[in-house]
Amino acid sequence: MKTVIAKSFERIHRSNLVGMRIIPLCFKPGEDADPLGLTGHERYSIYLPNKISEIRPGQDVTVTTDTGKSFTCTFRFDTEVELEYFDHGGILPFVIRNLNKE
Score class of each variant (00 low, 15 high):
Thr62Gly: 00
Ser45Phe: 06
Arg11Cys: 06
Gly37Lys: 12
Gly30Cys: 06
Gly89Val: 07
Pro93Ala: 06
Thr65Tyr: 08
Lys51Met: 03
Arg76Gln: 15
Tyr85Phe: 15
Ile23Val: 15
Phe71Gly: 03
Thr3Ser: 10
Asp78Leu: 15
Arg97Asp: 15
Pro49Ala: 02
Thr39Ala: 08
Glu82His: 09
Arg21Val: 09
Glu80Leu: 14
Lys51Cys: 02
Phe77Gln: 03
Gly58Tyr: 02
Glu82Met: 02
Pro35Phe: 09
Glu54Gly: 00
Leu36Lys: 13
Thr3Val: 15
Asp66Gly: 09
Arg11His: 12
Pro93His: 06
Ile46Lys: 01
Thr64Arg: 13
Ile46Ser: 04
Thr67Met: 03
Tyr44Trp: 04
Thr79Val: 07
Asp66His: 06
Arg14Met: 12
Glu31Asp: 15
Tyr44Ala: 11
Asp66Ser: 09
His88Gly: 00
Ile22Glu: 11
Gly89Thr: 06
Leu99Tyr: 14
Arg76Lys: 13
Ile46Asp: 02
Asn16Met: 06
Asp87His: 15
Phe75His: 14
Asp66Ile: 04
Thr74Glu: 14
Ala6Phe: 00
Asn98His: 15
Ile96Tyr: 07
Ile91Phe: 14
Pro57Thr: 02
Arg43Thr: 13
Thr74His: 07
Leu36Gly: 12
Pro24Thr: 06
Glu84Ser: 14
Asp34Cys: 12
Leu83Glu: 05
Gly37Gln: 07
Arg97Ser: 10
Pro57Asn: 00
Thr39Gln: 12
His13Asn: 13
Met20Asp: 09
Arg76Phe: 05
Phe9Thr: 02
Thr3Ile: 11
Thr67Val: 02
Val81Asn: 10
Leu25Cys: 11
Asn98Pro: 05
Leu92Asn: 12
Cys73Trp: 05
